[in-house]
Nucleic acid binder design. Structure first.
Lengths: 244, 244
DNA sequence: GAATCTGTGTACGCTTTCGTACGTTGAAGA
DNA sequence: TCTTCAACGTACGAAAGCGTACACAGATTC
């Protein structure tokens, strides 16, 4: 089973976190797929047939509201999956757009449903992930109202940094401005400010993280909570562990 | 079974939407409880032991982030329940504060878990409700970034109006300002503007809806989407119905 | 090498909202 | 009736961000 072991390696945290039994059901049905930048993995309101366990790259979850002016309410990478709506047997409620290319292990929705029925453990695990996503969206709402543009930029960069696992983030100001829901010029300005504090370095279409700790300090209370809660929620000590 | 029928009446939409079988499991374990204003039904990070199927009144879901300056990311009334985190066997991730008093049918979390295990239909039904909540939070994030104070006020009033089912909303400017994350003076101003357009009438601690359609128009794209999607999600035609 | 396009720098007046502060009024308690 | 207090009205300078516009530079295409 040596080659099998190699085959079964992944960088997706959810799959890594699954206990043997659940993974066994799932694994044979997964297919690896490349995720090119600027492609949609799902669109709000359109039936999607696949679920993506992200292994690398970054996908943003966009609230389109009434279609125009979408904003980024979530960021998903190797710690998560695209297609949570399929868990509840629903069509997607948000757009999922690949921001930074990568790859994913892909599962057919029908197969997912089968696995969920067969494995209560998987269902409860993914339910917890859904809650983790709610936390992220919720904190995005909070930051959107209370944080200024610089802080929101810093927050976004940190979230991307977490998921890319490298200091170079291929992002344009234009791109960022659309996600944050601000002017492109405001982003340029904010980037300059962060650069002036030596927290990042900006080149054409590329932002490099220079001082992560500094960025976190800059961001203050708007970064960290979601990450801590993700760890808590996805750790194998749910509710019952909190009871005395 | 005449008296039994009477006993089993409720105004909670979720319970009303449950098919007979699922409701039978649930009903004997429900106890009616009064929800006084300004009380917390659950707090982020603290173990909660109950789930509330709201029958009347309004509860707001607050993202506390790092504790100070909470903001309202969701509004729950007779169409929903408090305690979605318990479905995934997790502790609450947000605060739930009773804004307008009412009553609820209350279920113990342990009982809920039993019912969920016994009834897959219930589980899938409540999973869908969780998705509906995500939609609401997501749209709150969108509105928080893109809408101005007046629009956000209008949105909030409409959401409360939906849930109260009457035109009188007992809300103070102070109260609203905390939820929207703006100055109290900004709310006073926004209230005046809506009043000037004869959309509402404001008295001390009370806002009366005068022209709901007008409010919706004023609010534009920031109201309606969540409500439509709630209906879609909770209707008994999930995914499969969308496949040709 | 020229043309073109995408990404970035920058500026200016304008609007919204903020921070702060103080005055007024309605309602409830003494 | 008087007091007290929560709720509301209002004001003013400051700051953040917007809309718009135009110029420039690196990269790509022809």
């Amino acid at each position: 089973m040596h080659s099998d072991e190699r085959f079964r390696s992944t960088t997706n945290w959810l799959l890594l976190g699954l206990a043997g039994q659940e993974l066994w059901h799932l694994w044979p049905r997964l297919r690896r797929e490349h995720l090119p930048a600027k492609t949609y993995l799902e669109r709000s309101g359109s039936l999607s047939s696949k679920v993506y366990f992200i292994e690398s790259g970054v996908v943003s979850s966009l609230e389109t509201g009434d279609v125009r002016d979408p904003i980024e309410v979530g960021v998903i990478g190797r710690e998560g999956l695209i297609g949570t709506s399929a868990i509840a047997d629903l069509i997607p409620q948000r757009d999922s757009l690949v921001q930074i290319e990568g790859q994913a292990l892909v599962l057919d929705c029908v197969q997912l449903q089968k696995c969920l029925s067969a494995s209560p453990g998987l269902r409860s695990f993914l339910s917890r992930y859904v809650q983790a996503q709610m936390v992220q969206i919720s904190l995005a709402a909070s930051a959107g109202v209370r944080a200024n543009v610089q802080q929101r930029l810093a927050r976004k960069l940190l979230m991307y940094h977490d998921r890319v696992g490298a200091d170079d983030l291929p992002l344009t100001h234009e791109n960022i401005s659309l996600m944050l829901g601000v002017r492109r010029a405001s982003v340029t300005n904010a980037v300059h400010n962060l650069e002036a504090e030596c927290l990042i370095k900006a080149q054409r279409g590329l932002i490099t993280i220079r001082d992560r700790a500094g960025l976190e300090r800059y961001c203050g209370r708007f970064y960290g909570v979601a990450e801590t809660r993700y760890a808590e929620i996805m750790s194998d000590t749910p509710r019952t562990a909190c009871v005395e």
